[in-house]
Nucleic acid binder design. Structure first.
Length: 264
DNA sequence: ATGGTTGGGGTCCAA
């Protein structure tokens, strides 16, 4: 089973690139963030035609919005966490018994200071809330996959310059502390770094505000796939499709994919 | 230190 997560930055602007990427990767389940559309206007028929007939959408006007799309028979049920008024989470129970959580963590604004920046405060609070939820409602023995745009690059080689980004939102010590608390809550393991070791630079996002993203290569790894310990041995592939950033009319994020062996 | 680009909804805010 293949699972892909992708911050799409407006689903309606990306139908061509989504079509191309789904043909190339062929995931069984696709988790999207920042669909930037109300639930009623999601392109349901577009995904139906591509075989993604199970569709759970939590939309919002203008901002945010998440979706989980599955091929026939992959998804049993859906849930959502009541976290805030914003559309930032959906989870499903997969047919193989695994629980899959899709998050769009708040970006947090420009100034990394909770006193002067409400958005940064909200981001840290959001991490506290979901960490508490996993501590109170799940254990390390459960089969859980957590994916999404977590808007934090925790490792030194998850950013183009550790030193230059220490005071930049997404790589500050306080954010890294928060993402690590979530990571440790039920002993998640990083399914992507299983295949690309922490000594290697690895990014999933490149700003639009660079003349040549490939040349400057000032990326960050903001998009993640974590699994609990019982699933870790069965993750047989992990990949960030970096080349997608260079496709026509791209999102600023790239799709991130894992493959699980048939039996868990 | 600053500005660079994109998207949505409506002539500005968020990323």
């Amino acid at each position: 089973m293949k699972i892909t997560t992708w911050n799409i930055n407006s689903i309606r602007k990306r139908l061509d690139i989504v079509h191309r990427v789904l043909n190339e990767i062929q995931p069984d389940v696709l988790c999207l963030q920042e669909i930037k559309v109300i639930t009623e206007l999601f392109p349901y028929e577009f995904f139906n035609k591509l075989g993604y007939v199970t569709q759970y959408i939590k939309g919002q006007s203008g901002y945010n919005g998440v979706a989980i799309l599955g091929k026939f028979g992959t998804i049993k049920d859906v849930q959502e966490m009541q976290l805030s008024s914003e559309s930032r989470h959906l989870s499903v129970l997969l047919s193989n018994g695994i629980e899959l959580h899709n998050f769009y963590i708040p970006a947090g604004g420009d100034v990394p200071d909770s006193v002067v920046n409400e958005k940064f405060k909200y981001k840290l609070q959001f991490f506290d809330d979901i960490t508490a939820w996993f501590l109170n409602n799940r254990t390390a023995k459960d089969k859980i996959i957590l994916v999404g745009d977590l808007n934090v690059a925790p490792l030194e080689n998850d950013v183009w310059s550790h030193k230059q980004l220490l005071k930049v939102v997404s790589h500050t010590p306080v954010e890294i502390e928060k993402i690590n608390s979530l990571y440790k809550s039920i002993d998640f393991l990083d399914a992507i770094r299983k295949f690309i070791p922490p000594e290697q630079k690895l990014y999933s996002w490149w700003s639009y505000r660079n003349r040549d993203w490939r040349k400057s290569d000032r990326g960050r790894r903001l998009d993640h796939i974590w699994v609990t310990q019982p699933l870790f041995p069965y993750v047989i592939e992990g990949h960030i499709a970096r080349e997608v950033r260079g496709y026509l009319n791209p999102s600023d994020h790239c799709p991130v994919t894992i493959q699980l062996s048939k039996r868990q």
